[in-house]
Amino acid sequence: MLPSISRFPVVDAQSLTKKFGTLTAVDNISLKLEPGECLAILGPNGAGKTTTVEMLEGLLTPTSGHLKVFGMDMQKQRSEILERVGVLLQETNMYKRYTVKETLQLFSSFYKNPDDPLAIIDRMNLKDKTNVQLKNLSGGQKQRVYLGACLINNPELIFLDEPTTGLDPQSRRSIWDLLNALKSHHKSMILTTHYMEEAEKLADRIIIFDHGKIIAEGTLNHLIALHCDGQVITFSLATNHKQILSDELPKVLTSLKSEHQVFSSAVPIGNRVEIVAHSTSSMITAILETLKKHNYEVHELNMRSGSLEDVFIKLTGRSIRDA
């Protein structure tokens, strides 16, 4: 590894803002990525994740702010930076009539010191597909070709924008294995994802975005301890009537809140309510008492420890799947 890398953060973004007309997509965010670190960016759709990542990739010019990658200025030394960066974009389709080998050869031609396409094909477990056209590959195989194209220049910094969205569970796991192998080679990575499991498995540090701002930042354990310390209790009412639910649930919650100061957050999601409680047994008693008072039957009552998903729900008020 080059000595210059360890002296600087790999990515150093200061007060980045991106406006599209009157819309502020990204609002004055700062972030750093240390060498060998994997940073996951989570957030609802439209939160500014992709806009941020595209600024870091040099695809969008920030409206204001400073961006250094490998200690170099993105505006002035863009092509030098891009020689050392790999990207996997969302919803890209490469030429469907190229073979796997031709696709990687094309991308290798863009860089000064590319890896051997055949070696990359081997690493992506696509050896038997070397001369197959992309149109004849499955979604998971194609994503591995695109990941191969992302790694063709042996990049030090890798951007992965929703790398497993739309893939079946088995293909997702095979991509995660490949990404974990990259982590063990001390590649620095920035990952955006909709899958909590993906962030939990791969990320050293997590940033949560909402409305163009960073609303939480830290390691997985740090975020859970800070925002979801305690047990998560979920309950639903024994009615399917949506109107009753949307009218009555807030009343139930207000009543719970005023009479029992035992929880740190409560969020209605569909026909369920999620509550993060410090004292589980008294919380359950309180829920049952309150429901009885309002003449509701409890339909389902669950209890588990906090997860990244709970942190996300608590901070954005949305389930990541709804978001």
Binding site: E57, S79, E80, L82, E83, V85, L89, T92, Y95, F110
Partner: peptide, 11 residues
């Protein structure tokens, strides 16, 4: 198909 964007992210 976002391929032009992908090219833009290369040197």
């Amino acid at each position: 198909e976002n391929l032009l964007k992908r090219y833009l992210a290369t040197p």
